[in-house]
């Protein structure tokens, strides 16, 4: 039951993009076309889940054990940067097809603040689901949370890319063209997602 609540909460209620504003730059940058949005969501899901798992372990068994919590920011960003490189190399070797599909988006992910954001969130913030007591997430919960959060990011991005493809065909006033109208559209999308608040 609790895992179910985590998933619903991470995808709909606290959507990482539409409620927490993490990962806005790539969200605006690659959501021009549905196909690129899908590719980017796949790559982000993969990296967020893996990076959160690794940083959670590093935080628990290295930083906390040796009282080095102040190095969190530096350690996490290095881990993420290294991980993205490793993922790139491994994918190229074992699954060239997937690498082809995700290839160009992978290097961009290092500077996607959603990745660092989720990694820091799960080790510092106390969560409470369905009225239960607030607590730091344990390992299985962390993995479920990270994966669901990434799915939520993908959902928002794919929805938005669909909207934006239609937007292209409309006659938008000059000053609104491009990014401004995109932001106003995301605002309305976020307004729709606000309807989910309170269900978990």
């Amino acid at each position: 039951m609790e895992y179910f609540l985590i998933i619903i909460s991470a995808i709909f209620v606290n959507n990482i993009m539409l409620a927490q504003f993490l990962g806005t730059c790539p969200f605006i940058g690659v959501s021009n076309k549905l196909s690129t949005a899908t590719g980017m969501s796949g790559a982000v899901t993969f990296v967020i889940t893996l990076a959160t798992l690794v940083t959670w372990l590093i935080n628990k068994y290295l930083l906390i054990t040796f009282h080095l919590e102040f190095l969190q920011t530096i350690a996490f960003i290095l881990v993420i940067a290294a991980l993205v490189q490793v993922v790139e190399i491994v994918l190229k070797k074992i699954s060239p097809a997937l690498y082809q599909a995700l290839g160009i988006y992978l290097p961009l992910i290092t500077t996607n603040c959603a990745v660092l954001g989720v990694a820091i969130n799960v080790v510092t913030k106390e969560f409470s689901f369905g009225g239960g007591p607030a607590h730091l997430l344990n390992l299985p919960e962390t993995i479920v949370y990270a994966f669901a959060t990434a799915l939520g990011y993908g959902l928002a991005m794919i929805l938005f890319a669909g909207l934006r493809e239609h937007l292209e065909l409309n006659d938008v006033p000059k000053a609104f063209r491009g990014v401004p109208i995109a932001f106003i559209t995301v605002g309305i999308l976020a307004l729709a997602f606000m309807g989910f608040s309170g269900i978990v």
């Binding site: 539409l18 409620a19 927490q20 504003f21 000059k174 000053a175 609104f176 990014v179 401004p180 109208i181 995109a182 932001f183 106003i184 995301v186 605002g187 309305i188 976020a190 307004l191 997602f193 606000m194």
Partner: peptide, 20 residues
């Protein structure tokens, strides 16, 4: 709504329009 998420996107969008 303006201090919550949707307001952030809407305000930034309209401010960009004015800036442009």
């Amino acid at each position: 709504a303006f201090v919550m998420a949707p307001g952030a996107f809407l305000c930034l969008g309209y401010l960009m329009v004015l800036f442009n």
